[in-house]
Design a binder for these strands. Structure first.
Lengths: 226, 226
DNA sequence: CATTGTCTTATTGTCAACAATATAACCAAA
DNA sequence: TTTGGTTATATTGTTGACAATAAGACAATG
């Protein structure tokens, strides 16, 4: 189990790291917020030692930025930074998809198809679309890139990029998300994987990510005009 | 200036981080070495607080691995990990080259040509080939990917991947490096950039990295047979 | 002799006080 | 009024002591 993805227990610094991370990623702690050590330590009822370690871990995954002797602030995701995050994601997750296509077992591919079926079945339930957007879609992506066979790559995607991505998503919630379109793109990707067409699977994944960026981008320019 | 690439001054934890990092990357500290906190703190004449922060920074760039309550060890680069590092490098630096081709200024491209000329002029000096391998080649790669226009990508390549790469290189020093071949590949890459042929530049960069991996790989299998 | 359980010990995790630094508040001079 | 330097204060960086944990030594039992 992974200390970034799930660590509600363990050392104090890990626990507090996890709690602060969730607060940042879900928008409870606003972007640009000053993270005073004394204040936070008091709030989480720990001393400044482990709290500083927690902040350092947050810095390592780019959720906060530290300035020597000046303090640490929650990162501010402007349009340019978000563009960079999606650009990175397109390249790296596309590459991971290519690799996964080459090494996934038949059994794992069947699991993917089952996952698709579940998503399609649940999408018309009450709140099914929101659930798919917030849980199903990330699950799908995670399942694929976690099978790419490159630990370095998986760690980077899971611990760094996807945390920033969740932040982007929250900053642009209420976007005109079309779950049906995303789902059909998912199925095309799995079909390409099933055909062992690595190049095509990578291309489809990249386009899938591009289209979600376009959605986010249009949302951002709308916000700018207001 | 960057806290991973150059930080011989600043806070104690930064200074010691930099010193330990150099020792690990250059092989002074052997792979798998136990990093006892008390011992290290005494050696660098600081207290355990900043030393722990330094170790945490090393963990963030994958040079050491920490186990809760058990201690931290220098990472051990086996053949599989090295394969992953070169695979990541091929994908990410290739992508960075593609981006750089699209946004580099004419002036920056001219700088690249000047760099090539310097390298070609110096390669026949005494120790010129070794100098090119250890300084010139990394400079060339850094100059290109630093111009890709994606801060996230540059940071990852510079602070994480290239540190591990230096470690790989040291582990396989005395490989049959052919500076002339590398240099001509460099020139081809710059030509592709100059022609604004992003796809071709990416391909050439990927092949250039592939061939250096093949060298490392053959070295590793030789070591295995002995 | 092997194995299990306890205890010791070395190491890491945590804490609270102290030192160093940067921000800002303030005053003086132009 | 503005600008420049000086001081005050709040915050971060650092330290050494204390607590908690895990690995190893050792003895007792089958």
């Amino acid at each position: 189990m992974n200390t970034v993805t799930d660590n509600r227990q363990g050392t104090l610094s890990d626990q507090v790291f996890w709690r602060i991370k969730e607060d940042i990623v879900t928008g409870v702690t606003p972007q640009g917020q000053k993270m005073g050590e004394a204040e936070l330590a008091k709030h989480y009822d720990i001393s400044r030692g482990p709290l500083r370690e927690a902040l350092q871990k947050l810095e390592a995954i780019n959720l906060v930025v530290k300035a020597p002797h000046a303090g640490t602030h929650v990162v501010t995701l402007d349009a340019e930074k978000m563009r960079e995050v999606y650009q990175m994601r397109e390249a790296m997750e596309g590459f991971a998809t290519r690799l996964a296509t080459q090494v996934m077992s038949k059994n794992e591919i069947n699991n993917l198809y089952r996952l698709l079926d579940q998503h399609e079945a649940g999408i018309n339930d009450t709140g099914g679309k929101v659930y798919f957007q917030e849980e199903g879609d990330p699950d799908f992506h995670y399942y694929i890139f976690s099978k790419c066979g490159n630990v370095q790559l998986v760690n980077y995607l899971e611990n760094q990029l996807y945390q920033l991505l969740r932040m982007c998503r929250h900053r642009t919630s209420r976007l005109p998300y079309r779950a049906e379109k995303a789902l059909s793109e998912h199925r095309s990707i799995v079909d390409a994987i099933n055909n062992r067409d690595a190049e095509f699977a990578e291309m489809l994944m990249r386009r899938h990510i591009q289209s979600s960026w376009k959605l986010v981008e249009s949302m951002l320019s709308e916000q700018n005009q207001q």
